[in-house]
Write a protein that binds this DNA or RNA. Structure first.
Lengths: 204, 204
DNA sequence: GCGTCATGAGACATTGATGTCTCATTTAAT
DNA sequence: ATTAAATGAGACATCAATGTCTCATGACGC
């Protein structure tokens, strides 16, 4: 296990950033590649982290902690649950590499998620339920679909920012409006018991 | 390179399916794992494919070919470009593992995409442009955002089907309505030159 | 049943990635 | 300037995954 007091914080941070960046693009990248990108020797990487598994694990912990902290900070001053969700989305887009790392590079968690993760998920779903009460999402829309769309639109937005096609605020705005407008209407597709086939919404 | 006439098609197909399934879940999975899931020996896998790289390459070709074929088949009978997009989306959700494999497990394509891929992308963007003319998407919405959202909502829908939370038609309906309703309105977030902050749409 | 081909199991060789360690140099604090 | 700690480079060991091959068995078509 990594020692609790980092040897040289700047070096350790460089490794962590390089690892997030490299592994979110290519989960199979070697430690050599990460060390190179961090501007350190591979032996140094091994001094800071007990090995590949340890680095992965630390990144997982850090990603979750950082995302939680940022989400909580984003909620400060929120005027409604809906506002909170909007702020969380923007905060998560800024942490897109962490988000993507967890989705793409982190070892599959297996069937038993950690209790902490389950708690976070439950809290998130309850915020969604509250936002639905506020009128943001249609009552027929499955909360799990809202949550899943939320996550995937964060990824989409982050990708646009990373590719330089959108600024962060543009991407955040688009992701948010896609989510809220997309999920505020009634449902097509048989979920409400009728298979009404829509041609697409009329232009406003 | 793999010989052009497969030795025993059923064996080869089993390997391919197992590879799509395994690699879309864990891109680092070993050939031994894939062979086991396919119910064949690893030596057999090597007889059908020249190696890991070859299997990856073949999967990439197959995924693209299959998706192209299904997309084209889905467009038959479409009554508008919008209808074509809706049908394509449903078809791609059914091929979610292929789609996800290309996004997640396939080696990064590097800077130079294949000409065929660029052609497909251009065609897709032109269908989006036509659907915008038909009133499906707001004219201010960047086509690249439409395309990106489209892709990510396919992933989202496929995930829900795979987890057993939604049926295919439910997921397809939700993904489609999320996309079209989400992208038909005017934009918030500074893209239209004003930073109007919306609280969220009123309940219909 | 027979013959041919495909296959599984196992053995072995190779390789890239990882882990471990030493030593000279660099860095940072006093 | 001095000292202690951190580091880079390089060497070496280990190992899982991959690639290659042989042989006995199984599958399939006639």
């Amino acid at each position: 296990m990594t020692q609790t007091s980092p040897i040289r914080p700047a070096t350790r941070d460089a490794i962590i950033e390089a690892a997030f960046r490299t592994w979110s693009a290519d989960p199979a990248a070697s430690l050599e590649e990460i060390a190179t990108l961090a501007g350190v020797g591979r032996a140094t990487l091994h001094r800071h982290f007990a090995g590949r598994e340890d680095l992965l694990e630390q990144l997982g912990l850090l990603a979750r902690a950082e995302m939680e902290e940022r989400a909580n900070a984003a909620c400060i001053g929120a005027t409604s649950h809906t506002d909170a969700l909007r702020r969380i989305m923007a905060a998560m887009i800024a942490l897109g590499d962490r988000h993507w790392f967890l989705a793409r590079a982190f070892p599959p968690a297996g069937t038993g998620a950690a209790p902490e993760e389950r708690r976070t998920e439950a809290r998130f779903l309850s915020v969604i339920a509250e936002a639905t009460e506020e009128g943001t999402f249609h009552p027929d829309c499955p909360p799990t679909w809202i949550a899943t769309s939320f996550d995937h639109l964060i990824h989409a937005a982050w990708g646009e920012v990373r590719e330089g096609r959108l600024t962060h605020s543009q991407a955040a705005g688009l992701a948010w409006s896609t989510l809220t407008r997309g999920l505020s209407g009634g449902l097509a597709g048989g979920l409400a018991g009728s298979a009404v086939r829509t041609q697409g919404p009329a232009r406003p």
